[in-house]
Design a protein around this nucleic acid. Structure first.
Lengths: 235, 235
DNA sequence: CGCAACATTGAGAGCCATCAAGCAAAGTGG
DNA sequence: CCACTTTGCTTGATGGCTCTCAATGTTGCG
């Protein structure tokens, strides 16, 4: 019997291989990166990192779903991103994080202490390039997000999110039209700048227009891909 | 008499010295950077780069004000940023730009052809670090922007913009409470996800609440800095 | 001076937030 | 196994904020 730690490590290696962070890294460098990683297993709705906390580590989820949010002093919050395995978490400009991150579902997450991680970044140009690429991708994603919130109405914003989630499905599952939504309506609302009620009405509208169908367990089937794409207005 | 080109070059060097892009660069490296620069002088409301165009250059304004926008297929647009001298322009993830940029006022802009610029970036680690820092700063700014649009009401969004602009004044002018707004109400509206009329009403509201006063020539005086900061909800 | 561009203000409509109720699914304890 | 609770989703009614359409006022320029 393989020890749990070893099988988890194997899964980590498997996932990490396909992550943007580790693209093009030699297996030797990958091994080095894994030696500085700590593995954390968290239940649902646990804090990964806290807004205002010292940015002393970066993270890489290897399974489960997570959420990144920015909260204001009056309790309002803006959900910045929904994460899944292989997504880099830990961008910071200064000493501290300007957002919080939580698990949506039970998750296993690799934690890299900042000091050793960024030392490694300096030693491995490929890793540095990957970080730059990730940073650009995140920026472009946030710009899409900004455009959606600033210029679209409720149902089109939801279409935007569904399109985003669909496009991020693993390629093997790409022809598939089923989506799993591990987040609650309130999370989606705070992502789209809407209340949970308006979000629910947006689901109802897309349903009644025949764009999507919803099933048990927060499963969404995309019925009219072209209509969804047109509403989301991305290519 | 110094030739115009030379005096402009001197101004370029002066400005460039204080830009984030060129921070910590030796004067020798600065000189190298300037040798690959082309200087462009544009009138107001001219296109600097076009959404969808080939990302074959990056830019650095050395005077004037500029605007970056993302436009959708239905004509709606999201203003992404207001630029001024020393601001880096040219982030791209793929082959083409995903936004357009225009001059708001007559501007002089340095243009760096991408091939030679990024070759230089590879040769100068300091330049590469600066680019990374700029990228992070832009990301954080966009996140603030997202939070404002997603979670604030019209007058608070305007307060957010005014606060942003005030904070970006050169330090020498920092105690000053006067702001110049080179953009139109429609530009501000598209930046904040509002119509120009609602933007105008937001100005009126901040005026009537004694937070700001407006003068001729789109000058704004901040009367109640604390109220502005509280509305903008940033620190 | 007169025109053009931009800003302001008003009236009414529409979309979304708020408050509230009802419903469905999952978990809990007797 | 089944009340009971909890949690989350949906739907309805109402009010408020913003958009749209429109008119007026202001500034700047030829």
């Amino acid at each position: 019997m393989v020890p749990i730690v070893e099988s988890a490590k194997a899964q980590a290696q498997e996932t990490i291989l396909q992550s943007d962070l580790c693209a093009n890294l030699s297996s030797e460098n990958l091994e080095t990166l894994l030696t500085i990683a700590q593995m954390r297993t968290l239940g649902a709705n646990r804090e990964i990192l806290a807004q205002g906390g010292v940015a002393d580590a970066v993270y890489l989820p290897i399974n489960g779903y997570q959420l990144v949010e920015r909260s204001g002093s009056d309790g309002r919050r803006q959900v910045l991103a929904f994460l899944q395995c292989g997504d880099y978490l830990g961008i910071s400009a200064g000493q501290s994080f300007l957002y919080s991150a939580y698990t949506l579902t039970p998750s296993t997450i690799l934690r890299f202490p900042a000091s050793r991680f960024f030392q490694l970044v300096e030693e491995l140009p490929i890793l540095k390039d990957n970080l730059g690429r990730i940073s650009s991708q995140i920026l472009l994603r946030v710009i899409d997000h900004l455009f959606a919130i600033g210029q679209k109405r409720a149902h089109a914003r939801l279409a935007f999110l569904l399109w985003q989630l669909w496009q991020r499905l693993p390629e093997a599952r790409y022809p598939q039209r089923e989506l799993e939504l591990p987040m609650r309506r309130a999370d989606i609302g705070d992502y789209l700048g809407l209340t949970l009620e308006t979000t629910s009405r947006a689901f109802s509208r897309l349903r009644s227009e025949g764009v999507i169908a919803t099933r048990q367990g927060n499963q969404v089937e995309i019925l009219d891909m072209e209509a969804l794409r047109r509403l989301a207005e991305v290519d």
